[in-house]
Design a binder for these strands. Sequence first.
DNA 1: CCTGAAACCTGTCTGC
DNA 2: TGCAGACAGGTTTCAG
Length: 277
Amino acid sequence: MPELPEVETIVRALKHGGRGGAPIIGKKVSDANLLWDKTLSTPSFEKFEGKISKTTIKDITRRGKFVVIHLDNEFLLIHLRMSGDLRIDPPPVLPPQNHDRLLIYFEDGYRLAFNDTRKFGRAWLVSNPEIVTGNLGPEPFDTTLMASDFYMRLQRKKKQIKSLLLDQSFLAGLGNIYTDESLFRSGIHPMRLSNTLSSKEAERLLKAIRDTLNEAIAHNGASIDWVYRGGEFQNNFRVYQQTGNPCPVCSTPIQRLVVGQRGTHFCPKCQPEGVPE
DNA sequence: CCTGAAACCTGTCTGC
DNA sequence: TGCAGACAGGTTTCAG
């Protein structure tokens, strides 16, 4: 489910409260419960329980789509994949909810629940977060990432732009929704090869990515179906899941196609195929 | 090295 | 109503 804006919203809620939960910074872990073995990538649950008990949550940050929970001497990283979510339960804590996979109990009676219907989500407890996030590309909001750098990086690859934007080692944080929305806003066809973009187009694309993500964060991300609650950005989709609806710019019906095994939405008029003159 | 397909999972919706 | 099939916010693995 969650892409950068949804993960950012969750991180802010864990840090400052919101989405029905209290801040968890400063809380001390008492123990943990793993309800689906594969959810914990590393270490073994036995070691995990020993290492996480009695530690205090120092900070919570985001890297790409990873939630990074800073503990005294280690880091708990969580990737929500398609259907994961994090929930704070106040005391008195009730029995686990349906699809809860990993529970972390605090000494003050609160509980952090990693809930994940489809079981794709993963957690890692590591001494250095880079062990997990080392292969990620730059953050879209990295102020040192200039349009000219972005253009050069696009030139070096020869891949369909939609697939390249989904590649987390190229740029960290975009998923299916925000690539479609960003490509629409920059007027670029999703199947264009990355090395055919002009420097102007690269600049427009980077700005569109940043504008789209900022707007989505301002709306607390997007909520679709039963997955992820509290966001409102789904009401602002221009093309994602708008197949057949009129383009908000030119009224041409939005089309759907498959690019790199992913459903892709675009306006055939605003995002013409082929390289412009 | 690269690309594309399959795998990992559960739930919802559509069409016959 | 039942049931098969498609599809879903992501990533890793494997075959070629």
